[in-house]
Design a protein around this nucleic acid. Sequence first.
DNA 1: TTGTAGGCGTTATCAG
DNA 2: CTGATAACGCCTACAA
Lengths: 343, 343
Amino acid sequence: MVSIKDVARVAGVSDKTVSRVVNREPNVTADTMEKVRLAIDSLGYIPNLAARSIRSSRSNIIGIITDYISTTPYSGDIVRGIQDWAGVNARTVLLANTDGDLEREANVWRTFKAHQIDGVLYVAMYHRTVAPASGDVTIPTVLVNAHAEEGLSFSSIEPDDFGGSAALTQHLIELGHRRIGYIRLNPLLLGANERLDAFLVTARSSGIAESDMIIRLGMEGPIGREINYVYREAQSILSLSDRPTALVCGNDEMALQAYLAALSLGLRIPEDVTIAGFDDFKTVSLALKPELTTVALPYHDLGWQGAEMLNELVQGSSKRIERRILNCGLVVRKSSAARDRVV
Amino acid sequence: MVSIKDVARVAGVSDKTVSRVVNREPNVTADTMEKVRLAIDSLGYIPNLAARSIRSSRSNIIGIITDYISTTPYSGDIVRGIQDWAGVNARTVLLANTDGDLEREANVWRTFKAHQIDGVLYVAMYHRTVAPASGDVTIPTVLVNAHAEEGLSFSSIEPDDFGGSAALTQHLIELGHRRIGYIRLNPLLLGANERLDAFLVTARSSGIAESDMIIRLGMEGPIGREINYVYREAQSILSLSDRPTALVCGNDEMALQAYLAALSLGLRIPEDVTIAGFDDFKTVSLALKPELTTVALPYHDLGWQGAEMLNELVQGSSKRIERRILNCGLVVRKSSAARDRVV
DNA sequence: TTGTAGGCGTTATCAG
DNA sequence: CTGATAACGCCTACAA
């Protein structure tokens, strides 16, 4: 391993001078700098960050703690957003997974502490409340796609499920739909309730009668092992004699099942029924034909901006608890159409 | 920050003795150990891994380099497999993403080197050949879901696309299908060719005539920005007067489009046509009704075993280049049925 | 502008 | 079985 001393010897200067060049400190002549640069290149010197972190007790590492339960492919983009921020801001990312196991989580926090990391992004794979179990370890933390359980105080960044769902509902109403089916996500999901509430509030305020909102539960049971009624419920709703002209699904995966149900009944989308999802999970939303009208979750931005928030916390430029809510944009594609085309 | 010296003082021993206890070295009396343990707990001491790595020049960190291009949700399981191995084996995981940018990649390698990481898992998000651009940095490396381009020598671990596709084809033939459609993945994907080749070889060896294999290209163009013909091609194949009784798709996402095409033509799955996919991407394969017969890519195992291979390399217990191929298991669900039910 | 001395927290070495 | 001392690679503080 080539160290700062080797470089110093080759360049004919002291190790401190090399350190100055490497860290872009002032007060080095262009001439000296050049000599040092040359020596660095010829030796292939790379500073040892561990040694640096000992002295400066800042590691420039941020940690990500996730807790995927079973298959949640969606939110990898959050992690990518964090990585992108880290790449641009010369940070490195440590990644750990708790699997929802408390003992394992405590271990993760200790390991992170042992690595002297600057801060933690605590990432939930679906929008919900969390209770970080850091034990007696204290590290600046921001919750991403989650907020803290009652009594805990953490900064957080979350998607505006409510706003997104309201926009989607508004869109359908503007298309002339007055009788709308709704298949709910697992009620254990925070997003499930926000999305449903927004649907109800928006529909009511547009004068839609309760009897014209056909609400069904699409899935229930523990996350990752839920029982799924979506296909059956979609068929049931679409078989009603006074079938709604639009069907909103809790997420895109459910919309996929609604498509299959509609097609199996010989209904065309959107001529016979408008279908909408939520998430803009592109593997589904763009594979569906016609492509799916849905609401985009800002996963990448949750990660990126979460990293920014954490950075402010670490720098000490902001000490207060912040709860940031990110907009979820409506994505109109071909699965939604005006009601008058439907009649 | 509480250091080993603080613990030593409180326990009334030397710092080296504390070090022995922490590292489970032999030659410490149970009594001394107990005293030290107590001091550690009461102070909340956590060893500084940076300092340790300086002395021992082993960091117990492994690095993951990925290169996601656009949206590839599938293979997050590879990373999870690596994490799981790391959790069990007391390693920490550094994560970095190159975005396919060579300059950025060179930077990642340098950063990893600077962190003294023990080894690198170079992870491709879809099965293909790669050329790690590590510059003059040398770190033990294993390629995951990829193999090295001509002339480069790296150990690698890869899925057996060929075997999986052969098993799937065999399954269809055993069900009595003698005329089969096939929609190809983007030919740029390594898996695309292996899967198609296996299909052709297996079908031929079962005496299926070339004219009874209806091969179509489903997508082409640069990865992440391909043009997608799947829906159109599926409709075209299924509209043939001598329509095949089974349709194989390059992956599950394509199978989804085939479902939509079939249903739009009023065909029932599997009564009128058997459909099969590849990947077992559960968000799709289980959401489809009937659930999809497909082939499971062993993503989690690719990660886990890749980490094991890397560990052997790092330990020096194995110096030779190994290319390990992992089995892809056939997953039979309800979208495939015997041909005699079809007639 | 540059260099020297010392120390960060840990482990290796070797003496007791 | 235990401890003193040195050393890892770097940076801080201060002196030249």
